[in-house]
């Protein structure tokens, strides 16, 4: 068994040290949800209130209810995301109803990507995506702190080089 060199942060072997996502992602998603659904509620309420009468304007409560539900769902989804760097592989676990857990050995990584869209950048977030030779490998960690994302990228690349094994 080829074990990692001594510089591992996680405990090698069985007990993975799980790391959750920083709260910035949740804040961003909730804000976007409230802004969009709030605008929709106001627009719908005004339109129905003016055209069909004030009773119909009650329909504008629907987007608000949706926003309330989405608020909770986003929170649960955000809590479900976590990752762990083990000595030889990266673990990513996510999902509330549809759970998914991915294990990628460092040696199989072909490419590590750090991406950050305009909105994400505004909130100071970046995501790390891992690619292996299999396209089905869907290993993305969203909403990381840019510094942490870069640290992770560098570490993964370094470990990937040390344990490289192609196809």
């Amino acid at each position: 068994m080829e074990t990692g060199s001594g510089q591992d942060t996680g405990v090698a072997g069985d007990e993975p040290v799980w790391i959750g996502l920083p709260p910035g992602l949740l804040r961003m998603r909730r804000l976007l949800l409230v802004v969009w659904l709030g605008l929709l509620a106001v627009g719908l309420g005004l339109l129905l209130g003016l055209l069909c009468g004030p009773v119909w304007a009650a329909f504008a409560l629907l987007p608000l209810a949706l926003a309330g539900w989405g608020w909770v769902v986003l929170g649960r989804n955000w809590r479900s995301w976590r990752y762990a760097e083990r000595a030889d592989d990266l673990l990513i676990s996510r999902g509330v109803l549809w759970r998914e857990e991915t294990v990628v050995p460092y040696g199989r990584m072909q490419l590590v990507e750090v991406t950050s869209g305009p909105v994400e950048r505004h909130f100071g977030l970046a995501s790390v995506q891992l690619h292996t030779a299999a396209a089905a490998t869907d290993a993305t960690i969203p909403g990381l702190d840019p510094a942490e994302a870069e640290r992770l990228r560098d570490r993964l690349t370094e470990l990937g080089e040390a344990r490289s094994a192609g196809l």
């Binding site: 549809w98 857990e101 991915t102 299999a134």
Partner: peptide, 30 residues
């Protein structure tokens, strides 16, 4: 030849305590 391993479990599968294990290979086959 295994590139990554995934475990997935939907809500109905969770109820019956079963799960699927996917093994991804380099030929883009799972």
């Amino acid at each position: 030849k295994v590139q990554s391993v995934r475990l997935t479990q939907g809500p109905w599968e969770r109820l019956w305590r079963v799960a699927d294990v996917h093994v991804d290979t380099g030929a883009n086959k799972t």
